[in-house]
Design a protein around this nucleic acid. Structure first.
Lengths: 128, 128
DNA sequence: TTCATATTTGTAATCAATACATTATTTTGT
DNA sequence: ACAAAATAATGTATTGATTACAAATATGAA
C-alpha cells in the first residue's frame, strides 16, 4: 500500500472496503462488514486503521454527520451532501473552484471540507 | 427574540452569550459559563436551546471539531478554521463566492459549511 | 382562574471514541 | 536463522458528549 503505510491485512481490507463501498461508512459499519471476512478483527483496530489512513492522506475523514465520523476512500478533496431525512451521504462531483482554497487568513491550511445538507433527491421523490 | 422563538431566560442568555463570545463554544462551555448567572440552568436546557436556535436559523451549528458540536452566534454563513494544535476555531471573514452555493446535484440544499483545518497563525508564531 | 401547551430540569441511558495493557507479528542487525 | 526491537492487533475498561424520558414549572388563551 502506498502512502508509507505498512500493508497489514486489516489496513488493506479497510482500504479496499472504502474503495468498493462509496457509502461513506462510519467505524462501526466498516467493522461489522469486515468481521465475517476477518474474524479476529477488533473495533479498536478499525479505529487505529482509519486514523492512520486519514492522517497519511489515503482516505478522507468526514465530520458532516454530527453523530459520528465517516470515511471516504477517495482522498481527492470533493464536496459532500448529507440528507437530513435518510442520513445518506452523497459525493458531489464537482471541483470547488480555486477561490475557496485561497488563504485569506495567515493560518497554515492543510485541509478543506465543503459540506452541504438538506433533503436528497430520493427523499424528495418519496415526499411527492 | 426574533426567529419565532419564545424569549425565555435561558434562550435569551444563550443567544446573548453566543453574540458576545465569538469563541465557537460547545454546550459544556456555554453551560459552565452561564451557570453562575442562572443557577437553575440544566445542561439539557442548553442542549434544547442550541437545538432550537440552530433549527430556526438564529445560530450556526458547527461540526468542524469532531469531538463535539460547536456554535456560532453569527448565523450568516461564513467559513471557519480549526487549529489542530490549540483547538481554537476562527471565523474566516470572506464570503464564499456564489459558485459553491450552486446546486449541481438535484438535492434540496439548505445548509452549506466550509471548514478549513491546519495550524493557526498564533501557533505558527510560537513554533518559530 | 383554569385548562392546555410549552419549557425547564434532573436522572438515567446510549454509544462513539479513547486509553491502556497484553499478545502477536514483522523488521533489522548479527 | 535467531534474538532484540519496533510495529501492529486485540480486548477490556473508561470517558464523555448526547439523547431519552418523566416530573416539575411556567406561560398563554379562553
Amino acid at each position: 500500500m502506498a502512502y508509507g503505510i505498512r500493508p497489514s491485512l486489516p489496513r488493506v481490507e479497510v482500504m479496499l472496503y472504502l474503495l468498493e463501498h462509496r457509502t461513506h461508512p462510519n467505524v462501526d459499519t466498516i467493522y461489522k462488514d469486515l468481521l465475517p471476512k476477518i474474524p479476529s478483527l477488533s473495533k479498536t483496530t478499525v479505529y487505529n486503521t482509519v486514523q492512520r489512513l486519514s492522517e497519511k492522506g489515503a482516505i478522507l475523514r468526514l465530520t458532516i454527520d454530527e453523530k459520528n465520523v465517516c470515511f471516504d476512500g477517495i482522498s481527492e478533496p470533493h464536496p459532500h451532501f448529507l440528507c437530513k431525512k435518510c442520513g445518506k451521504i452523497y459525493d458531489l462531483n464537482f471541483v470547488p473552484k480555486a477561490n475557496i482554497q485561497l488563504d485569506f487568513s495567515e493560518h497554515l491550511i492543510d485541509e478543506v471540507s465543503l459540506y452541504y445538507r438538506g433533503i436528497c433527491k430520493e427523499c424528495l421523490e418519496k415526499m411527492k
